[in-house]
């Protein structure tokens, strides 16, 4: 069986700046993959390439055996590629339930959207349950906390029944408690979905990651298990080493 996602030799150049440089990136069905790297390593750019927000300068993006370079964003979503953003964007004027329902309805023909929503569909109920937002279903999304918004976004993704989920820093800005819950939610989702997670947080990584891909300055540095990656001297240099320097800096100042 071919891999679900195959990014081949992708480069992206923004005004002379190489955000990505000949990156190969393959994710198999059912994998939970973490994507890490220092700021500016090209993590989000890679996600943007996969979802169609950015066009690669060279290289191809393959999804489920077909090259999808020419597809637009919403077409890729219809193929089953869903994503969240670093800053969560839920629709504040809609209730939690309406947000989920809207996400779940995207395959309905346009004409059937003219009918009112009656009750709650199975997929939406499932997403409410998985994310634990059931009690907030009728609240406007605008009143949710930062953590709840992220969960709602993840819930919206699940409600779409995607084949590949891309989560861009889902725990950024969360409290320790919220991080733990998001980690559990992630483990739960990864049971029956293919998931790619961008994450900075090393602690989070150690607890929830299995396979990790490290990007550095637009290039793929190493791919392997958490332990392999942590033991790799290059990673320590570009990533952990920097953290050590920062720690030393903190002590000095």
């Amino acid at each position: 069986m071919t891999a679900l996602l195959e990014v081949r030799d992708v480069s992206v150049v923004f005004d002379g700046f190489r955000a990505l440089d000949g990156v190969d990136f393959t994710v198999d069905h059912g994998e939970l993959r973490f994507l890490i790297g220092p700021n500016g390593a090209g993590k989000t750019t890679l996600i943007d390439i996969i979802t169609g927000l950015t066009k690669p300068t060279t290289g191809t993006v393959g999804f489920d055996g077909a090259v999808i370079n020419g597809k637009r964003e919403h077409e890729r979503v219809r193929l089953g590629i869903g994503r969240t953003f670093q800053t969560s964007v839920v629709f504040e004027e809609l209730t939690v339930l309406e947000n989920l329902d809207l996400a779940a309805s995207f395959r309905r023909p346009l004409l059937s959207l003219l009918a009112r929503r009656r009750g709650v569909t199975e997929k939406v109920a499932e997403a409410l349950e998985t994310t634990g937002l059931g009690d907030l279903a009728k609240k406007k999304a605008g009143v949710l906390s930062h953590g709840q918004r992220q969960w709602l976004e993840i819930g919206m993704l699940i409600a779409q029944g995607p084949r590949l989920l891309l989560l861009d820093e889902p725990v950024a800005g969360m409290s320790a408690d919220e991080r733990a819950r998001t980690g559990d939610l992630l483990t739960e989702i990864a049971k029956d979905h293919t998931v790619i997670v961008i994450e900075h947080d090393m602690d989070f990584l150690r607890r929830y990651a299995s396979t990790v891909t490290v990007l550095h300055e637009g290039k793929l540095l190493i791919e392997g298990s958490v332990d392999e990656v942590r033991a790799d001297p290059r990673v320590q240099e570009v990533y952990l080493g920097r953290a050590r320097e920062e720690a030393a800096h903190d002590v000095v100042s």
Binding site: T51, R72, E73, H74, V77, R78, G82, R83, F85, V89, F91, E92, E93, L94, E98, D101, L102, A103, S105, F106, R107, R108, L110, L113, L114, A115, R116, R117, M156, Q160
Partner: peptide, 23 residues
């Protein structure tokens, strides 16, 4: 209707709507 909800969503976050699979 759902279309109305979608319309509000487009008003408030056109790019996000695109990533929900709607045009």
């Amino acid at each position: 209707s759902r279309f109305g909800r979608l319309l509000l969503a487009v008003r408030d976050g056109e790019d996000r709507v695109r990533f929900l699979g709607y045009n």
